[in-house]
Amino acid sequence: MRRIVGVVVLLVGVLVVLAGAAVMVVLGPDDRATTGPHRIDTVGVAVVTTPRAITYAGPTVSVLAELPDDKPVFVGLGNAVDVQNYLGGTQRLSITRVQVPWRITSRQEAGEPNLSAAPTALDWWEAQSAGLGGAAITVALPDEPVSLAVLAVGDSDLEGLRLTTAYDVAGGFLGGAGGVATGLGIGFLGLMRVRGTPLRRAAAADPEGGEARYVFVDDAGAEHEVDPADLDGYEIVDDAPALTPPPVPVVAPAPAPVAVDEPEPVEEEVVYVLVDEDGREREISASEAEGLEVVEEIVEDAPDPDDDERGDGHWRSRLRRALGVE
């Protein structure tokens, strides 16, 4: 089950990476995807999108309309209510569907052969441009229904019309990069889930019950310590010696119960010292100390003579009892 989840997460990560990379490739650093020029077969005076043809809002779109022989041409984007009222009675090529980057569905509609008014005289265009041989507009697609119109100006027509469109998505390239980074993150998580190499909980830091350490053993057998905060996704195998009663952190999947023995009491070393009337000390055995008054003296952090002799630099606690004589 863990591996299946891991594979799914990994695939999601890969898909996100691919999608982000695709966005980066399509848009490029200038955040713009361009398509065209595409030839539009019409001999009329109007090419117009129907109100439902433009289905997206937000991106900035640039449209360049070109006609041969420097024929005058107009490009405009307006609210669909305005455009339909203006061109509804005109013979036109209606584009009923636009699929990005460029795939259109159109139909020819009957009507008057000429425009009812010059498009340049109208004040409701949200973006408009006119020119000889070509005209271009750049406009952010609004949320309201809009229609794009390419119109012949004067007595001209649109024969030989070619359209080039560009889609600007501000920050799109950076967004693609973000997608790649996100996908990589997800993919890594999935990969770790798939490999599922268990973590070993190492021995306690000290026999008196320090914090547990967690160690990841890689394929080569090398151990790498893992921060307890990063334990999610690891399988915990208890490998600690039975010296301390370990508070086992609950990590899914839960580790098998570990039998823990009570720690054996550490035998204390007792040294009996007889102090004579002159104040000199003499070490005596425990049997000799019986019947004498025992004055207990605890010596802490005193260097262990044995340790000193070993020279290993460790100190251990030592209990010392001093005997006094009245």
């Binding site: 997206y56 809002a57 949320d143 998505v169 501000a170 920050g171 799109g172 950076l174 967004g175």
Partner: peptide, 8 residues
Amino acid sequence: CGQVPQRK
């Protein structure tokens, strides 16, 4: 990042 195209 920038504006994500919204479907109308």
